[in-house]
Structure formats: structure tokens, C-alpha cells
Write a protein that binds this DNA or RNA. Structure first.
Lengths: 363, 363
DNA sequence: ACAGAGTTTGCATTCGGATGCAACATCCGA
DNA sequence: TCGGATGTTGCATCCGAATGCAAACTCTGT
């Protein structure tokens, strides 16, 4: 036996009413308690027990007290599988996330989980690594009859339409699906990048480099095209290299750009913070560049390390709390009423001046 | 309607056999398909359908093919709640994590999730923020009748014994419960710290500072006492300040220690990487200290930022893959056989030399 | 063609809680 | 004291898949 079973169970059997013999010993061996056990102990019907745990049901305070007491004594917890079976509500929501190691998502995940649990909803975590895994993982999602899903991962349109067909509400997080026909929560990448570009150009930068994220990333596309577009409007040239949203991509990207421009680069726009951090480290360590004096580097996201003294990254911080709050409430609303129209809520990020980019003209 | 329902359903109705009328249109409206629907379409009994999806059941290849075809056409997925109800196996495992924002846990979480899904097990994520939430969150855990739990969070002994009483297997991750009576997977904190101390002392450091983690953290206690003990053995003095495992604690801790020692500090041992990083930044930015020339700083964990060029932290890296692999397999074994004895598997971390500490004597 | 061994199949029941309905209790005013 | 409005309660049934059992089937050797 792993542990001592020492809890005081079956002691408070002093209240009146019909009672069957209750053997504390059997607790440790018997099958988990059911509503029938509780009903028997409380001297009521199973229905009454059920109603006790179902808000809004008709039950007298007296019965309720008796039942709750019995339930507590027996350590009873309603079986979510049984109740889900009949109510067709699992109170489970799938949260699908691609790369948990992205530094940005853990915060999002923690927030979402907390907020969902405020609604009495638990999280079925689906961590996708490779695109190919999605189908296998989705099988699990279907089996558990989740009430909805929050998706911050690459999911094919077919897979998305599968959700729609089953009428399982979905909210995309920083993605965009099916021409705006799927509810989603996004941070305004284009606006954010335009702000960054405006500041950088206003400060006198002219020659730009951009390190993009993976091709299939929606946010990368948005951020890059937002920056490119604004740079074009302002008559600046920009060289583009591809990255993978990770630290090493920042390093590699900067090296490529330095080679391409022969070192003549005013500012570097990275599609996320992690690459910006990699680029800063590379600039300093490998090229002896003073950031931001010789080169301005900006990122996007506002992850925790961006604020660290070594970087003090100039970036656009996504309003994680507001975004997760929106995602959860949009989802919960659609679980209540699946016919709500799709809606795309876009949030503006906050420009963080930081100290990795010169954002004002030289006096 | 949010999406076009254009999938080719009900087209491949060319195979022989008794068939009822099948209306593709009804797919979009009707209730989700059950094993009875599949049975009817395949012209077999519900039992046959069930056996098709249950490995090891007796079913002929022919029937199997028919059923699978029908299931595919109808988009059928077995209802995990219904099957869990009768088999008493939910195929759910609770993964409880305290502070997801700790940089170390996302990696662990991703690994664990992936490995569990290899066993056909899904993850019910429980993200604890405050200790006080644990009870409310555990209620969810009990309702879903999880098959087991992997716990990397502060959980009270009472709560742990609750698992034991219900015979729900638990594996602790980097914790230690009930005098070794709970299966657990740990990284050898004491050994790791001793290695660090040995190296530091061997390199000539004598005056040490230690920044601890939160009082209630098991790993913090282990790491700190491991370091203290070895330092004492080697006749070195060490000042201790308290932290909270976050970046700011590194900063604050270093400031305290500098004040206490009047700047005369040879080496700083931080109970985790994040605090070490905070301390490095603080040393450089606020005290103009050259790390590691004037001060050696070491951490513990081996998180991703520790490898970044700005830090190149000297630390002990936990073998995350081996540890998660052990945690998952220990749990799965105990789900199969709950009577397996508790077991504590300890893994040695890997010393990463890095460049934030001078680990060899001055020539 | 048939007995017998081995396979495959369907029937009926089960898991634990939710809920419509009817029976019952309670309380109010007249 | 009684009618009726309101509030509680229990009964019976249902949700969807798994499974013991017995019936039906397949195949083998003779």
C-alpha cells in the first residue's frame, strides 16, 4: 500500500433518517461511489442526487443539505462521462497549439485554461508538432465530443470544415480561416508593423531587412506584408529572408542579410521576438554591431525575454489578456448558441519602445 | 451557414448489401452518428461495430471492412464518454502544472503530451496558478475519472492521498511526496549542485551567494541544500537570499547580495536558470560587473534562453526527454497494474559549461 | 455428407446520471 | 377547512458503446 488511508470517513453519521450500514473500510476497496450510493446514504432517490449537482434544478434546501452531506462523506463526484453522455455536453474544449516551445504560447495557454475553467470547462490539450499529426490528434478530439475548440495551430481547411459540419464551434487564435468565415481573434499584425515602420522611417532609417517566419504561418505573412507594404509606400527598399520563428533563424537571417547588403543595413524587422533576439545576439557577437546605434532591430509579440535587460526589444506586444478573454467568451457564446455569426476580432498591439531600435530622429 | 458543406458523402454506395436510404443532406442537420447508424448502414449489429473499434475483439476481416467503410462514409468516431462509462477507462490523464510561464515547463508539457498520445491517451490540462485553486481544479479531475495524473505542481499531501485512495496512479515530476511513497521522476538536484560547486570551488571561487526559489518548492530546497552542503564540506561560506524562480528575483537577489557583501562575491548560484539570467543582466547593467571574469553565475535547468549568446549560461541541463519518457512509462505501467510499487527514478543532469562562470582555475 | 472444433455474430444487459411526467407535499387565501 | 397554485420528489427511461453468452456459421478431416 502506497499511503496510509487515514481520513475520517463515516464519522458524522449522527443525522436522523434511514441509513444502511456503512463500512469505512470498504471505501478503500469498493468501486467509486455513484449517485445511487449517495442517494441510499441520504435516504433519497437518485434523481434527487442528480438535481443537487445540476444548477437550476428543483430541490428543497433540506434535501439538498442531506445529499451534499452524504456526498461529502462518500467523496462523491458526479461522473462527467455519464452526464456528458445524456446531456451531450462534455464541458471539454480542445485547445490546439502547434509549437508550445514558441515562448509566446505558454502564456496564452495558461490564460485560456484559467478562463475556461471559470466557465466550468476543462481543457483537452492537443499539442501538434507536425502538420501530419493533426489527423490522428483530431480523432481524439472527436471521440471526446468536445464542446468547442480554440485553435492556435495550422489546421487544414478540410479539418476546419469538419468542425463546422459537426457544429462544433471553433475560435481561431491569430489565424484566419476560410475567408473570414470562422470566428477568430487576432492581433493586428499589419497595423503593428506599419507603426514600427513609421517609427523607423521617421527616425531616418532607409535600408531595411526583413526576416520572415515559416511560409505557412498566417501571422508571418501578415506581418511581413504589412511591413513591406508600408515600406513601399514610404519609398524604402527592403530585403527579405526566410526564417522559422526560432532563435537560430534570427542569427542565420542576419548573416544572410549582412552578406546580401555588404553590411549596409539600417534596420531589421523580424517577424517575431525570438528571431529578433537571435539577430541581436548575432549582431553583437558576430559582427560587433552596436544595437541600436548601428542597426535597429524590432520584433513582434512581446514575449517575456524581450523585456530582459540584455535586449530591451523594441516590439509590438500582443494584448494577451484581452485576446484570450475574447477567444474564450466568443467560444462560450457559440457553445450556447451555435448559430451566432462568425466574427473576427482584431486587437491592436502596444508599441514597446524598448532600446533595440532607434525610433526617433537623431537630434 | 459558416461554411460550404461540399464533401463527397454517400457517393460510394456501390457495394452490395442491405441498405437503407441515405440522405447526404441530413448529415449536416442530424445528430452525430452512433454505432447504431454505422451498424445499420453496414448491415450488421451494433456489437460488430463496437468490436471493430476495439482491438483484440473477434471480428472477421470481411465484416470489419464493411463496417470501416460505413464508418468512414458517415464520419463516425466512437463516443469516448460512452465507452469510458462501461470500460471504466477514460483514456484521459491529468497533467497538472503550476507555472506554465516558467520556460522550463512548456517543453516538458509538449513532450509529455506527445508521449501520452502515443499510448492513445489524451491530456486533461490542469494549470494551477495559486495553491488555493487546486481543490476546484481537482474537482474537474475527479469528474472526468482520469486514468492517472502527472503532477508538476504543488499538491498537498491530502490531495495526493486522495489519488491513492481512489487508486488513481500518479507520477510526480520533480517533486517528492509522502516520504518516497509516490512514484516520481526527478532530476538529481543535489548531485547537480555538487558538481557545480565542485567546479566553482576548484576554479578558485570562495565567497558564494545563493539565490533560492520559493520556500514551498521541492526542487528549490534540494538545489539550495545540495549547494550549501557541498560548500560547507569544502569550507566555503555562502550567503542565502530568497527568490521566486523568476527573472526579477535574479535581479533583486543579486542586489541584496551585493549590498550584504559589499560587492565582494566570487560566485553566484541560482536555483534556476531564469534567476541566473536575471542576475547576469543585473550584474552587467547595474553593477558593471564582467560575467564571468569578476563574478561567476550558474543556474539550473537548461532552458532555451540559457544557450543564447548573451548569456551562455553555465548550468545543469535536465534530461527532459528521458525524464518525460520515464514519467509517461511509469504512469502507463501503473494504469495497467495499479499495484506496482512506488518507485523514484532520478536522472543526472548534464553540466553545461557555458560562459557565465569560470569553471577552471586561472592558469 | 457429417461430426466436431473453432470463429463470428447478435441479443440483451450494463455503465452512471439527466429528465419528462405524474404523484405528492406544502402553503396561501377565502 | 378547503381549493388550488406552487414546489418537491420518485419512477421510468434514455444516452452510446462494451461484453457474456449462446446461436449461427466456417472449415477440417473422414
Amino acid at each position: 500500500m502506497l499511503l496510509e488511508f487515514s481520513e475520517k470517513i463515516g464519522q458524522s453519521s449522527s443525522h436522523a433518517g434511514i441509513q444502511t450500514h456503512f463500512d469505512p473500510q470498504s471505501m478503500t476497496e469498493s468501486k467509486p461511489t455513484t449517485s445511487y450510493d449517495v442517494a441510499q446514504r441520504a435516504g433519497v432517490s437518485q434523481s434527487a442526487v442528480s438535481r443537487c449537482f445540476r444548477p437550476g434544478s428543483s430541490i428543497s434546501p433540506k434535501t439538498r443539505a442531506r445529499v451534499l452531506a452524504a456526498a461529502h462523506e462518500l467523496g462523491y463526484h458526479p461522473n462527467a462521462m455519464a452526464s456528458g453522455l445524456i446531456t451531450k455536453r462534455s464541458n471539454l474544449v480542445a485547445v490546439m497549439i502547434s509549437n508550445l516551445t514558441n515562448l509566446y504560447y505558454p502564456e496564452v495557454l495558461a490564460e485560456i485554461t484559467r478562463r475556461l475553467s471559470d466557465h466550468g470547462i476543462s481543457v483537452l490539450l492537443v499539442a501538434l508538432q507536425a502538420e501530419s499529426e493533426a489527423d490522428a490528434m483530431l480523432d481524439q478530439v472527436w471521440r471526446y465530443r468536445v464542446d468547442g475548440a480554440i485553435i492556435a495551430a495550422q489546421v487544414s481547411p478540410e479539418q476546419l470544415s469538419y468542425f463546422a459540419r459537426r457544429r462544433v464551434p471553433v475560435v481561431l487564435y491569430n489565424r484566419f480561416g476560410e475567408g473570414g468565415n470562422v470566428p477568430s481573434v487576432c492581433c493586428d499584425s499589419i497595423g503593428g508593423e506599419r507603426q514600427l515602420v513609421d517609427q523607423l522611417v521617421g527616425a531616418g532609417h532607409r535600408k531595411f531587412g526583413i526576416i520572415a517566419g515559416p511560409d505557412d504561418s498566417y501571422v508571418s505573412q501578415q506581418r511581413v506584408s504589412g511591413a513591406q507594404q508600408r515600406l513601399k509606400e514610404l519609398g524604402c527598399e527592403a530585403l527579405l529572408v526566410k526564417g522559422a520563428f526560432d532563435y537560430d533563424s534570427g542569427d542565420a537571417g542576419l548573416r544572410s542579410l549582412m552578406a546580401m547588403t555588404d553590411g549596409k543595413l539600417d534596420a531589421l524587422i523580424c517577424a517575431n521576438d525570438l528571431m529578433a533576439i537571435g539577430a541581436i545576439d548575432c549582431a553583437r557577437a558576430n559582427f560587433g554591431i552596436d544595437v541600436p546605434k548601428d542597426l535597429s532591430i524590432v520584433g513582434f509579440d512581446g514575449v517575456a525575454p524581450a523585456t530582459w535587460a540584455s535586449y530591451r526589444l523594441s516590439t509590438v506586444r500582443q494584448p494577451v489578456r484581452r485576446m484570450t478573454e475574447a477567444a474564450v467568451s466568443m467560444l462560450v457564446e457559440r457553445i450556447e448558441d451555435p448559430d451566432l455569426p462568425p466574427e473576427v476580432r482584431t486587437f491592436s498591439g502596444k508599441l514597446i519602445e524598448g532600446a533595440s531600435a532607434r525610433l526617433t530622429p537623431i537630434a
